[in-house]
Computed example of a mutant assay.
Amino acid sequence: MMVRLIAAVLLVGIMMFVARRATVVPTRGQSVVEIIIDYLRENVVYSTLGKVEGKKYEKMLLTMFFGIFAFNITGIIPGLNIASTGLIGVCLVLAATTWIVYVVNGVRKHGAGGYVKHSLFPPGVPVALKPLIAFIDFLQVLIIRPATLALRLTINMIVGHLLIVLTYSATNYFWVQAPSNFNLAYGAITFVGILFITCLEIFVATLQAFIFAILSAVYINMAISEDH
């Protein structure tokens, strides 16, 4: 919880600092933030939901991306050393938020009965298969989508954390606890592993934030679109 609070405070502080110092001719920091926001807006929000519908959800989706990234990246920051999303609680809250948004807006768009029909009974399905398809779609809407959102993020962060712990522990063992000519060489290999896994974790932290945001946009679009 402390790591999450630190990540949240730093994220809000950075964004407030950039926003308050924003100028027509952007500084380097402002340029970086604007480039990231523009990229996400075009490639996550508008490309999935369209510009009209996308404007309704862009604040939520952009906040999700930046928040998840901040919670992910703490896994490689010295002194913090744990991804806040490596524990299932925050991931469940984020997944539940997406679920509530797409269900509520699907009902608003189609009405309660219309949304059930839209979600569970796609057109063109043979009558004999409709009960099976409806059951599968019911599981998707109610359980599978939010569960996979939460589990995908959590498991990726847990695995990354374990790999970092493993390489650090191995290097400490070879260099500190059992030093010898052979062990020093093995320690050099595991130290390279630390650098590799750390770089990989930066990539995964960004990728998982992007995937969570774009899947949230896809699920919202499936709920509000006219076609199944």
Rank of each mutant, 00 (worst) to 15 (best):
M1W: 08
I6Y: 10
I6C: 00
L10G: 02
L11Q: 11
M15Y: 10
R20K: 05
V24W: 01
Q30Y: 08
V32Q: 14
D38G: 04
D38I: 02
E42W: 15
E42A: 15
V44L: 09
K55D: 10
K55C: 06
K56N: 02
Y57R: 11
K59S: 03
T63F: 15
M64H: 08
F71T: 01
N72G: 06
G75S: 03
I77L: 00
I77Y: 00
L80H: 06
G86F: 03
C91G: 05
W99H: 12
V101K: 14
V104I: 15
V104M: 04
N105C: 05
V107S: 03
R108G: 00
K109C: 06
G114D: 09
G114Y: 11
Y115R: 10
S119N: 04
L120P: 01
P123Q: 07
V125T: 06
V125M: 03
A128K: 11
F135M: 02
I136M: 14
D137F: 12
L142P: 00
R145E: 01
T154M: 11
T154P: 02
H161T: 05
H161G: 06
L162E: 03
S169A: 11
A170M: 02
F174I: 06
V176D: 01
A178R: 13
S180W: 12
S180D: 07
F182D: 06
A185M: 14
Y186H: 12
F191A: 10
V192G: 05
C199V: 11
T206F: 11
A209T: 01
L215I: 10
S216P: 01
I220Q: 02
N221Q: 13
N221Y: 12
A223N: 03
D227S: 13
H228F: 03
